[in-house]
Amino acid sequence: MTSLEIVKQYYSAFNQQNWKGMLALLHAEVRHETNQGEVRTGLEKFTEFLQHMDESYHENLTDMVFFTEPESKRVAVEFTVNGIYKKGEEGLPPAKNQKYVLPAAAFLELSDEKIIRVTTYYNLPLWIKLVSEEV
């Protein structure tokens, strides 16, 4: 399977809320670099992140555009996050099932046919504005 196919399968699993399917595509030492906060390393930390996200948000990604580099070790993807903010977090607005549509992007690196790095970017001030207007 190519790097692009692996990443497409990863995001397909995300949209199906198939967390086990996502985790199966990750390297044991995956490095997860989120937009805000500390870097998480390893499947255990990534699993904890997925559980937290599942409790607090319901998201589906659309308008996905994938980019690869010549060696096919890195894949970038631009997408739209269609979400519902289900459970509030400290330092963020209260959650009342607000809907949001937010542009975002991610950069993934592969090693041994597994995703070893996931770096995600989005505009946090815009997200805060979107969920605050929805209240």
Rank of each mutant, 00 (worst) to 15 (best):
K99N: 06
T34L: 11
L126D: 04
E78T: 15
Y57L: 15
Q36A: 08
R40V: 01
K73H: 13
V65I: 14
Q51W: 07
Y11W: 13
V101W: 02
E48K: 12
K20H: 09
E133A: 06
I115H: 00
N97S: 11
M64R: 12
V131P: 05
G88E: 11
N35K: 06
F67L: 10
L43I: 09
Y10I: 03
W19T: 05
E134R: 15
E109V: 10
G42Y: 03
S72N: 13
L4F: 01
L108H: 02
L26V: 04
E89P: 12
L43A: 00
W19D: 01
L4H: 06
P103I: 02
A13H: 06
G91C: 05
I116T: 10
T62L: 01
S72Q: 15
Y121L: 07
L26R: 05
I84C: 02
R117L: 10
N97T: 03
L61V: 03
T68S: 11
I128Q: 04
S56W: 06
I128K: 11
G91W: 05
V39N: 03
K114L: 03
E29V: 02
P93R: 04
E5R: 14
E113C: 12
N35E: 08
H58L: 12
E113D: 15
S132V: 11
M1Q: 09
I84L: 08
K45D: 03
L61C: 04
W127P: 04
E133G: 05
N82G: 05
T41G: 02
E5P: 11
L92A: 03
E38D: 08
H52V: 15
T68N: 05
A104I: 09
E133W: 10
F67Q: 14
V135C: 07
K99Q: 10
K129E: 14
S72R: 13
I6T: 14
F66M: 00
N15T: 04
P125Q: 04
L61Q: 11
D54I: 07
L25C: 01
L130Q: 11
F79L: 10
L92C: 02
E59N: 10
Y11F: 14
E113F: 14
P125H: 08
Y10M: 11
S132P: 15
A95D: 00
L23T: 06
L61P: 08
R117G: 01
S111L: 12
V75D: 04
L61F: 11
E38M: 04
T47E: 00
V39M: 03
A13V: 02
E134L: 13
L124P: 07
N60A: 08
